[in-house]
Design a protein around this nucleic acid. Sequence first.
DNA 1: ATAGATGCAAATGTTTTGCAGGAAA
DNA 2: TTTCCTGCAAAACATTTGCATCTAT
Lengths: 152, 152
Amino acid sequence: MAHEPQRRALARYLEEHNLKHTRQRELILDAFLDVQGHITSDDLYQRIRETEPQIGYTTVYRTMKLLCEAGLAAERHFDEGSTRYEIAHDHHDHLVCTRCGTIVEFECEMIEKTQEEIAKRYGFQILRHRHELYGLCEKCQGVLKRPPSELA
Amino acid sequence: MAHEPQRRALARYLEEHNLKHTRQRELILDAFLDVQGHITSDDLYQRIRETEPQIGYTTVYRTMKLLCEAGLAAERHFDEGSTRYEIAHDHHDHLVCTRCGTIVEFECEMIEKTQEEIAKRYGFQILRHRHELYGLCEKCQGVLKRPPSELA
DNA sequence: ATAGATGCAAATGTTTTGCAGGAAA
DNA sequence: TTTCCTGCAAAACATTTGCATCTAT
């Protein structure tokens, strides 16, 4: 069933914090890793309940927070409203298509450096940041260029 | 009572859209402009009700949306949760102090240009963006350096 | 045996909506 | 006198919390 490294990381985190290793936690970790994407707790809950209808949405919400604390997931807040989770990895920012919801990750060292300079100029010490570019992905630009009759 | 240019702009917008010029709308516009800051609808409601207790919070929420449509206010969503409104002016981004809530505006052409390049690389057409730097302002860095006994 | 987890229901905080009465054009 | 607004109460939404029960250790 794969996801072994992450399963081990979770097990380690739970032991170190005197927390319990439960079926639900393993289940949610697996489902989350399977999706590979920027998913909401509710999406994940809907998905899991298809095969495990006895699971509670509260548990999914709580477990996603736990996975963040364990360093396996990262919380993101895009404009659309609900909290999304991504698989934790190196720092990056996002491009978000406002039509189809596609999310693309990018990183740019130059912007990072420039941010530091700006912060220095205002006497701030940056702890984190949020940089999101909203617009149309290639595909959606194409769709919107067609005559209205062809639109969904 | 000042704010004449904005009052006129609002009046013009209301006429053009066949909307009505009411005491509440004028009141909310004035209060909003007085604050000069990044304020939530609820903050504004609390503030106005001190002198005008009969006003409804619904009206404040609705009017802030109206002021955005009229181009007089702009909506912002920072990490802390509720929607804040600022007086509409040239494009800019923000530094936010996570301890005291101070918000400083900045603009950086180089970052803007770099964003465009990134978008091009991924085939995106940017419609808007969001760039927020969270950290400690000068004052709060100082406070947090002191021994714990001196903290509030 | 016991600390901790689960899942339901209810509470939360913010914002929106339905609607009857009220004010502007 | 008609169209639009207001303000209340209630709904919406996403998320969190209280609590009795259940489970991993």
